[in-house]
């Protein structure tokens, strides 16, 4: 049974505009899947459907065997088990870094302050930000904030991690520090679904690459095949554009 199972998911905004067309794919436990494609192709929407941040009208998604659309599913509880990292970090600006990491641990998982704090400090050390634990998000650089955001998601001991363009809002020199953390995670066997244009990252750690365009999954293939000979013309055009430089 795959960790994330996406079956024929379609989504419309209003009656006319279809953002997702019959998307089907799966992510196995320990697998790293990179989702790429031109902007507006629906890749961010798809990844947000996986933890029910975005509703969809038809199809089904199962995470760890649990059906998202089953009315009896406790969505907050399920979401707590899926880590999510956003393009714009979305740390809580009024909370110190440690409090950002402790909030959901205490309020959702019911951990004690000590327990949450120990976990938070261990994760901050792991992403190299232990010295910044007393600061507020606004006092950190973009790269540092994104590493905190990854630590915040990891603090919940997730069964899978979703990344929605985690490096798109970063200055070039900060991209590496974030990717390093992600590569390490991938090598440790974390199940990951990553929307990104960082093809270097995909080459290094992805098992599979999904290429989307206009709401459809055009290609879904092992990395070697994808970078070797993408079958579709659209994927070839896309790759030639982003790999030109």
């Amino acid at each position: 049974m795959p960790m994330i199972d996406i079956q024929a998911v379609s989504k419309w905004y209003g009656p006319q505009f279809q953002v997702l067309k019959d998307c089907t794919t799966a992510v196995e436990k320990g697998e790293v899947v990179v989702v790429c494609g031109p902007s507006g192709s629906g890749k961010s929407t798809l990844i947000k459907c996986v933890n029910a941040l975005e509703p969809f009208q038809s199809g089904a998604i199962h995470v760890d065997g649990i059906n998202l659309q089953d009315p009896s599913t406790n969505l907050p509880k399920l979401r707590a088990r899926i880590g999510m990292v956003f393009q714009h970090f979305e740390l809580f600006p009024h909370l110190k870094i440690t409090e950002n990491l402790c909030l959901a641990q205490e309020k959702v998982l019911g951990r004690s302050r000590d327990e949450a704090m120990t976990k938070a400090m261990a994760l901050l050390e792991r992403v190299g930000l232990k010295d910044h634990s007393h600061k507020f998000p606004g006092q950190l650089s973009g790269g540092q904030q994104q590493r905190v955001a990854i630590a915040r998601a990891l603090a919940m001991d997730p069964i899978a991690m979703l990344f929605d363009e985690p490096t798109s809002a970063l200055d070039p020199e900060m991209i590496t520090e974030v990717l390093d953390v992600m590569v390490e995670l991938a090598r440790e066997g974390m199940t990951m679904m990553v929307v990104t244009h960082e093809m270097g990252f995909a080459r290094k750690v992805a098992h599979r690459v999904i290429f989307m365009d206009k709401g459809e999954i055009i290609e879904d293939r092992p990395k070697e095949e994808f970078f070797g000979t993408p079958r579709s013309e659209r994927a070839q055009v896309f790759l030639s554009k982003i790999l030109a430089h």
Partner: peptide, 26 residues
């Protein structure tokens, strides 16, 4: 930013908790 509520929700906070701890303080 819309992402603030999303981040709260994605962490497993309920709507009430997201308002109480994330949105209203800001």
């Amino acid at each position: 930013p819309r992402g603030q509520a999303m981040a709260g929700t994605a962490l497993g906070l309920t709507t009430v908790q997201t308002y109480r701890y994330v949105l209203l303080p800001m």
